[in-house]
Amino acid sequence: MYKSRILVVEDDPAISNLIRTTLETQEYQYHTAQNGAGALMEVISYKPDVMILDLGLPDMDGVDIIKRVRGFSSIPIIVVSARTEDQDKVDALDAGADDYLTKPFSIEEFLARIRAALRRSQAEKGTVGEESSVYTNGDLKIDYAARCVYVKDVEIHLTPIEYRLLCLLAHNTGKVLTHNLILKEVWGDTLASDVPSLRVFMATLRKKIEKNPSSPQYIQTHIGVGYRMIRQ
């Protein structure tokens, strides 16, 4: 049976030991690196399924590592860092990280983030070479060919911007998308809108697809950072 390979990039011995012990209990394979240079070599040689990355490494900043890895690999990257400022999270996610977990963290949440990253990666590999024309997530369905959206098989009428927002989130299910990334992808390089306007469009989209918009099950808000489509 295939065991997923995890690369742990962490220079704090206590945190590294905690993560390694946790991975061992779940029977994951893993390698470790204590600096950026070692991390880049391990990504190339070990070919891990997920990278757990601390931002504060002795030889280079974690954001720079993310940018360099993204130059040749789409491996899921989960940042685990003591940096709690929104801008740190935005910088890491904009650079290409898939998720961001702050220290101290719950072991249960840590493992859940790994499972989510692995599911997303496996789903992407399963559709390489063939773009599915229909997206399904719980009661939500998007027919890309017909440009139609359904909730419980009832067609929901969306504006063009709402449809583009929904498709962007759907294509990146499980991944946190920053405000800047969403604005760029939906409105273009000119960013013909701003974060307050984005919040308005997201609110109207939620009213149309969520059973309870005040407690959404599909689109999760990461305050000060962005949004994530949750797999049901």
Score class of each variant (00 low, 15 high):
H222E: 11
I15C: 06
I107S: 10
L23N: 01
A82F: 09
L181A: 04
K184I: 03
P48Q: 07
M41N: 06
Q232W: 06
D94G: 10
K67Y: 01
T204M: 07
A92H: 11
P13F: 08
G96K: 05
Q87H: 01
F201W: 09
P160S: 03
Y144Q: 06
F72N: 09
Q87D: 04
Y144C: 02
L183T: 01
P13A: 00
D61L: 12
Q29K: 12
S73W: 14
Q217S: 14
I15L: 06
A116M: 15
R20P: 01
S106T: 02
E131M: 09
V90Q: 08
D88A: 07
E10T: 02
E210L: 11
F105E: 05
K67G: 02
K141H: 00
I65W: 00
S81I: 13
D99G: 03
I219F: 09
W187C: 02
V90M: 05
S106M: 04
V8H: 00
G126F: 06
I19W: 10
A145D: 09
R164P: 09
D12R: 04
N180T: 11
A92F: 08
E42H: 12
Q232H: 11
T136E: 14
P196F: 01
I52M: 04
S4Q: 10
C167A: 13
N172W: 01
F110M: 03
G62D: 14
K141N: 00
R5G: 09
I209Q: 04
G129Q: 13
R228C: 12
L183W: 00
T22Q: 11
T84P: 02
S121Y: 15
T190S: 07
G62A: 15
V186C: 07
E124R: 06
K89C: 07
Y46K: 03
W187S: 03
G71S: 13
R199S: 09
G71E: 13
K47F: 15
R113G: 10
L93W: 09
V154L: 08
E124Q: 08
I114D: 03
L168W: 14
P48S: 05
I209S: 08
N137M: 05
F72H: 14
Y46V: 03
Q26M: 07
R70A: 12
C148Q: 13
H157G: 13
E109N: 08
L177Q: 02
Y218S: 02
T221P: 11
T173K: 13
L198Q: 06
P48L: 05
G226H: 07
K184W: 04
C148A: 12
A92D: 06
I107Y: 13
E130V: 12
Y28R: 01
I142Y: 00
N212V: 15
P213H: 03
L205K: 02
